[in-house]
Amino acid sequence: MYLTVLAALALPVLARAQTYSATYLPSNAPAKSEQGQTGTNQCGSGSSQSSMCQNVYINAVDDFCVFAPPEPGPDSVIGNTERIEVSWCVKPGYGTRVMPEGTITGAHFVQTPDYVQVTGVGDLTRINIPKGDEGGELDPHGADGNGNPIGGLVFSSAFGQVQQLHEWTNFVAYNEFCIRGCKDGSKAPGLCQHIYDVLGCAWNMPGNYDAGVFENCKGDTGLPMGVYGTSTFHQGDPVTPSAHPAPSSSLCTPLGTIGNIAQGTSSASVASTSSAVVSSSLPSSSPAASSPASSGVASASGSTSGSASSAPSSGSSTATASRSSGATSGATSGSSAGSSSGTPSATGAASSAHRASRVEWEAVALVLGVVGGTMLI
């Protein structure tokens, strides 16, 4: 597998650096945590559909948020709005916007020893993502270290008391989403890697994307995206390997709905379910990585051919069912595997070029982080 010079230099930085410029709680976050931030991190409680809150939570299948555009319109593709996205949550109470009825049609929460993750599908045009926009990645770094969106913070109470998760990654498209927040520690940068921004949900976060299912699960820690044994794939290498197999998950607790946002559910008649993840000992971590498959070449526009993007795993869960890990292969139709350029247009093409250069600058930013001895956030 091929490694560019920048990637080879950046990887040791990711492995060592665990110093962050600041750590916040929702109760003590400043109005703006980064220069150039358009929204706020002092969000209060309740909810407002005009909120500019940029705090996201990942707690359970009926208690999570994603970042999405603040305004509707054909120009609100993720590639154009990644720096100004705001928080859209399943439930009120965080001072954010609340996803409208019909937004989510399937969602799957998994808690592992090292991260929490939600994967799913829906009609995300209801949270201002233009129809047809294949979306892109949002993360706490960005090209300048201020994040996409600038100042976006992620919190979780899944590991005990609410805490900030400094490393996270979130893909959103018009019909699919995934978000992962990593527990602080040496594994966090690799498990919440942010350099594969054109490869989409199924490649970065293989898991369950079934519609019509809402569940809380325990799960194994997956393999770091892009790492195959002793080799590390870098976006732009001549061959894009297949996604890792989806990690095993078990102890899944299904929910009928997740409040008023599930398709066809009346907001007047259904209250938000407060379902906790099943308490139990966590499964062991995933087996060693397998060798990459030579299946597909990343194109200049950020799309992949062959099986560069893996298809979501299938199958529903019961309260005691165990979902074994298996390879996910084939191209994902309509997944957020785009180049953050959205629908084919002049603005989309510009966004594709922007993201291509952004990958290089992110690597440079990580290398330069060695000089200051800190991890950029």
Score class of each variant (00 low, 15 high):
Leu3Gly: 02
Leu3Asp: 06
Ala8Asn: 11
Ala8Lys: 15
Leu11Lys: 05
Pro12Met: 05
Leu14Trp: 12
Tyr20Ala: 10
Ser21Glu: 14
Ala22His: 14
Pro26Leu: 02
Asn28Ala: 01
Ala31Leu: 04
Gln37Phe: 08
Thr38Gly: 08
Gly39Ile: 02
Asn41Arg: 02
Asn41Pro: 01
Gln42Ile: 04
Cys43Arg: 00
Gly44Val: 05
Ser45Arg: 06
Ser45Val: 07
Ser48Thr: 07
Ser50Trp: 04
Ser51Tyr: 00
Ser51Gln: 04
Cys53Arg: 01
Gln54Leu: 04
Asn55Thr: 10
Pro69Thr: 10
Pro69Cys: 09
Pro72Phe: 08
Ser76Ile: 05
Val77Lys: 12
Ile78Asp: 01
Thr81Leu: 07
Glu85His: 11
Glu85Ala: 14
Ser87Ile: 12
Gly93Trp: 03
Arg97His: 03
Glu101Arg: 14
Ile104Cys: 04
Thr105Ser: 15
Ala107Glu: 02
His108Arg: 03
Phe109Gly: 04
Pro113Thr: 12
Asp114Ser: 15
Asp114Ala: 13
Val118Leu: 00
Gly120Ala: 03
Asn128Met: 10
Pro130Phe: 15
Gly132Tyr: 06
Glu137Ser: 14
His141Trp: 14
Asp144Glu: 10
Asp144Pro: 01
Asn148Thr: 13
Asn148Met: 11
Pro149Gly: 05
Leu153Phe: 01
Ser156Lys: 07
Phe159Gln: 03
Phe159Ser: 06
Gln163Ala: 14
Phe177Gly: 02
Ile179Met: 14
Gly181Lys: 11
Cys182Gly: 12
Lys183Leu: 15
Asp184Ile: 04
Ser186Ala: 13
Pro189Tyr: 09
His194Pro: 09
Tyr196Lys: 11
Leu199Trp: 08
Leu199Met: 12
Cys201Met: 00
Ala202Thr: 15
Met205Glu: 06
Met205His: 12
Asn208Leu: 12
Tyr209Ser: 01
Asp210Trp: 02
Ala211Asp: 09
Asn216Glu: 05
Lys218Thr: 11
Gly219His: 02
Thr221Glu: 05
Leu223Gly: 00
Leu223Glu: 02
Gly226Lys: 03
Tyr228Ala: 01
Tyr228Phe: 08
Tyr228Asn: 00
Thr232Cys: 08
Phe233Ala: 09
His234Asn: 13
Gln235Asp: 05
Gln235Leu: 11
Gln235Pro: 00
Gln235Thr: 09
Gly236Arg: 10
Asp237Ile: 00
Ser242Glu: 13
Ala243Ser: 15
Pro247Glu: 07
Ser249Thr: 10
Gly256Thr: 09
Thr257Leu: 03
Gln263Phe: 06
Thr265Phe: 12
Ala271Phe: 09
Thr273Met: 01
Thr273Val: 08
Val277Trp: 07
Val278Thr: 13
Ser280Gly: 15
Ser285Thr: 12
Ala289His: 00
Ser291Tyr: 03
Pro292Phe: 02
Ser294Tyr: 07
Ser301Trp: 01
Thr304Leu: 13
Thr304Ile: 10
Ala308Ser: 13
Pro312Met: 04
Ser316His: 03
Ser316Ile: 03
Thr320His: 00
Ser322Gly: 00
Ser324Asp: 08
Ser325Ile: 00
Thr328Ile: 13
Gly342Gln: 11
Gly348Thr: 07
Gly348Met: 07
Ala349Val: 15
Ala350Thr: 13
Ala350Cys: 01
Ser351Lys: 09
Ser357Ile: 12
Ala363Asn: 13
Val364Ser: 05
Val367Pro: 02
Val370Asn: 10
Gly372Asn: 14
Gly372Leu: 10
Thr374Ile: 09
